[in-house]
Nucleic acid binder design. Structure first.
Lengths: 331, 331
DNA sequence: ATTATAATGGAAAGCGCTTTCGTTAGGAGT
DNA sequence: ACTCCTAACGAAAGCGCTTTCCATTATAAT
């Protein structure tokens, strides 16, 4: 490995000067600068980030922690896009992303691991907050997706408003018997969307029978299926259902078709997320779009602020948008 | 930050002994071990990986490089699953994954960056090989997905056989006029699948008009659309088409529907990849499944071998499988 | 009791870099 | 000719850890 010492010898300057050149200090002559840079080129020198990190206590890495309870990890259709948006932004500032292994069930370990790695910040995704929160010791700057907290920054979509938009639209189409397949009621997104839904129903003065609220679990296709099966079994079927996640909506759609019914002919369906598939299914899914890229970017901005000490807002709510496609129709 | 020195002082032993305990050396007494571990616990000590890396020249990080020409980065439906499989395996051996920023268009820089970071190995994905190959200097152990090379390890699906399976199946269903929407013909997968397709057609003694071979570009939805439009414009339309990627197949399917035709009523469609969506579209897409998880795992095994010096095979071909769903039917 | 041997512990160098602070030389000012 | 600055450079310490090699002590063998 060629080091700063090799460059020093080759260029005839000291390692101090070499280091200064490499770090753009001002008090080096043009001559020295040229000599050093030339040596760097000739020797194909690459600085060693561990050494630098050790000396400066700055790693230029950001840790990414995924909770694994959904099983798919990185391949998650929603979160992977958020991460991508996040990555695009932090890259601009020369950060790399470190995906740490999760030491399942041992949140304490995850924190320690990040500490061990000396990451400058952390983005936490798909978590229940058990990973990280309340680590007494000097905290690592962190930002949370879909998890509202007092302490650090967190960013999430305007879930309530999203649910509201869905209901409004359905009502506008003339629906009155509207059900909701809820997301996991221990998750922030699940809870908020359900709240928004209920509120909107109330606003419209619509009746909301208890059995119109069914739990679809962790936003999975299977969960959507099961929930829809229950809805279909009702004697007083809804004419439309707001589903708290696109994957669940797809499961629901499938069940409806299997029952020989049609979407939107018999039942209108509206999802949440606007994952990549949504527009490609048949019928294309009307849904509430989360701006994944923006969520990621906002998280990045927030985290970078925290890292740089200019602590700004604690919480950022990202607007959502109704995407009309073909899974809903007037009654 | 609490260091090994703090532990030494607290436990009454030297830093040497502390280090030995922490690294499971055998020549330390039980007593010392206990004392040290106790101090570690009390002080909440976390070792510093930069320092360790600096001293040992081993980072326990594996670099991940994505070519970005597909734009979606991490969110790619196929590669993200491969990476996930890879991650699951290397995690077992305590490696973390470092996603480096890509310095687009400057392959040289990517290599240097990885060197800078001191990663123990690299997985290269979605690349044309321009990133990495032929870096004269001490090479970093690397494994390539979908890119066959002499030098380092590479793993990919049995693309030819996959295309073959597709044709065989279609022929079995009675089709004779079979077209192929090819993947980008500068990409390994695109080339191989096209080869397999032609070979299979020849094997069956089937006629293959030149215009039955249409290029769909970089495996995108849009590319599939455009290719299918051209196919539809033919006077002598195919009754079935083998599409080199699922995303393209979805694009093609959409175009067919838009033209008022039916899949599989008028045209049978068969994709490649079996991405998550494939089973959820309407009709569910018959496709050649790549075992993404296995590809990832094989890559991990190979890379770990390289890292540990037990260089084994250079190339691993992962079997594919025909998944029959509902986008094909007998003629 | 004496010597050989094994078990245990520590001093110190080194990994590659940054950064403080001091030194030197040259130019400006009088 | 002399002092005073400033600009340019380098010595050395330090970041937190590993590892070699030597010193010491305990144990076994005679």
């Amino acid at each position: 490995m060629t080091t700063i010492y090799d460059i020093a010898k080759r260029s005839g300057y000291s390692i101090t000067t070499v280091s200064k050149v490499l770090n753009n200090y001002k008090n080096v002559s043009e001559k020295a600068k040229r000599a050093v840079l030339e040596a760097v080129e000739e020797l194909g020198y690459t600085p060693n980030s561990s050494a630098r990190t050790l000396a400066t206590n700055k790693s230029w890495m950001i840790g990414v922690v995924f909770a694994e309870h959904l099983g798919v990890g990185i391949a998650h259709p929603f979160f992977s896009e958020v991460i991508e948006g996040f990555k695009k932004h932090v890259e601009l500032y020369n950060y790399d992303l470190l995906f740490v292994s999760r030491h399942m069930g041992m949140q304490r370990e995850t924190y320690k691991h990040l500490k061990h790695r000396g990451v400058d910040g952390v983005i936490v995704v798909q978590s229940f907050g058990d990973d990280f929160i309340g680590q007494e010791e000097s905290p690592i700057p962190a930002v949370y997706i879909d998890l509202p907290l007092e302490t650090p920054g967190s960013v999430y979509s305007d879930n309530r408003h999203g649910a509201q938009l869905a209901v409004d639209y359905l009502v506008e189409l003339g629906h009155r018997k509207i059900a909701h397949i809820m997301g996991e009621q221990t998750s922030f997104a699940g809870i908020e969307r359900a709240k928004g839904f209920k509120k909107a129903m109330a606003n419209h003065g619509l009746d909301l029978p208890e059995h119109y609220l069914v739990n679809g679990g962790f936003f999975s296709y299977e969960g959507g299926r099961e929930a829809m099966i229950r809805l279909l079994a009702l004697q007083d079927r809804p004419t439309a259902v707001v589903v708290a996640g696109d994957n669940m909506a797809l499961g629901a759609m499938k069940v409806i078709k299997e029952a020989g019914l049609s979407v939107p002919g018999d039942i209108s369906l509206i999802g949440f997320d606007d994952i990549a598939i949504a527009k490609h299914v048949d019928p294309p899914l009307t849904t509430i779009r989360q701006d994944k890229e923006l969520i990621g970017r906002q998280a990045a901005i927030m985290l970078l602020n925290q890292i740089n000490g200019d602590d700004s807002g604690m919480t950022k709510v990202v607007p959502v948008q109704l995407i009309k496609r073909e899974s809903c129709r007037p009654i």
